[in-house]
Amino acid sequence: MQGLNIVVGVSGGIACYKAVELVGALVKLGHHVDVVMTRNAEEFVTPLTFQTMSRNRVVRGMFDKVDRYDTEHISLAKRAQVFIVVPATANIIGKIAGGIADDMLTTTIMAAKCRKIIAPAMNTAMWENPILQENLEKLRRHGYEVLGTASGRLACGDLGEGKLLPWEEILEIVVGKAVMLDRTDQIQTNH
């Protein structure tokens, strides 16, 4: 099986570090990964970390200088076979659900016509907020796959729902368990 072109959108939450593991695992399985980070995500993990794991330049701002002419949000959107936002904060979910395209991540996902996955992560009170739940339902109605969350101790110390699913579970959802196991066997056999 040939690798997929996957865009990983990273928004600003403490769970960003789990997205690093996901990107590394996708690359090891032979997928081409482009990472789009919001400015808030850069407060948690540096672009260099994602660049190292993805082996590609990280896309950050709408007006970053590039070394070629390209309407980058459109070319990324056209190339993507899967677009996953991980972690997806309440803010980025609200923007996408509201059709707001004011940064590279929201603009690119708006232009994408591929499979789109939202992996939420936030405080329990935010997760239970009816406005957030309405936004998630709206995304589902528009064909987005919305993942659940895990329960446990959150970064703020609270206990409850809202934790990002383990990156291994997200990996299985993105590429499919059978494909992932097959590719892992091939990687182990070749090394």
Results as ranks from 00 to 15, higher is better:
residue 151 S to V: 14
residue 134 E to L: 05
residue 114 C to Y: 02
residue 138 K to A: 00
residue 26 L to V: 03
residue 105 L to M: 03
residue 40 N to P: 06
residue 178 A to V: 02
residue 130 P to R: 11
residue 21 E to S: 15
residue 120 P to C: 09
residue 48 L to K: 07
residue 81 Q to N: 13
residue 54 S to D: 06
residue 75 S to F: 06
residue 160 G to C: 11
residue 30 G to V: 11
residue 11 S to T: 15
residue 36 V to L: 14
residue 110 M to P: 01
residue 78 K to V: 04
residue 16 C to G: 07
residue 103 D to F: 06
residue 93 I to K: 00
residue 162 G to T: 13
residue 4 L to T: 10
residue 18 K to R: 14
residue 191 H to W: 02
residue 150 A to Y: 10
residue 96 I to P: 12
residue 5 N to M: 11
residue 148 G to P: 09
residue 70 D to V: 07
residue 109 I to S: 06
residue 137 E to P: 04
residue 127 W to H: 12
residue 39 R to N: 01
residue 115 R to I: 01
residue 109 I to G: 09
residue 123 N to F: 11
residue 187 I to W: 13
residue 64 D to K: 02
residue 114 C to T: 13
residue 4 L to D: 04
residue 85 V to T: 12
residue 67 D to P: 06
residue 119 A to L: 00
residue 28 K to H: 11
residue 9 G to H: 03
residue 82 V to I: 15
residue 27 V to S: 02
residue 3 G to H: 11
residue 48 L to T: 10
residue 184 T to C: 00
residue 154 L to P: 07
residue 65 K to I: 04
residue 111 A to T: 01
residue 5 N to H: 11
residue 137 E to G: 04
residue 107 T to L: 13
residue 143 G to N: 10
residue 57 R to V: 02
residue 44 F to K: 13
residue 129 N to Q: 11
residue 159 L to Y: 15
residue 170 I to T: 02
residue 4 L to K: 14
residue 86 V to F: 02
residue 166 P to E: 13
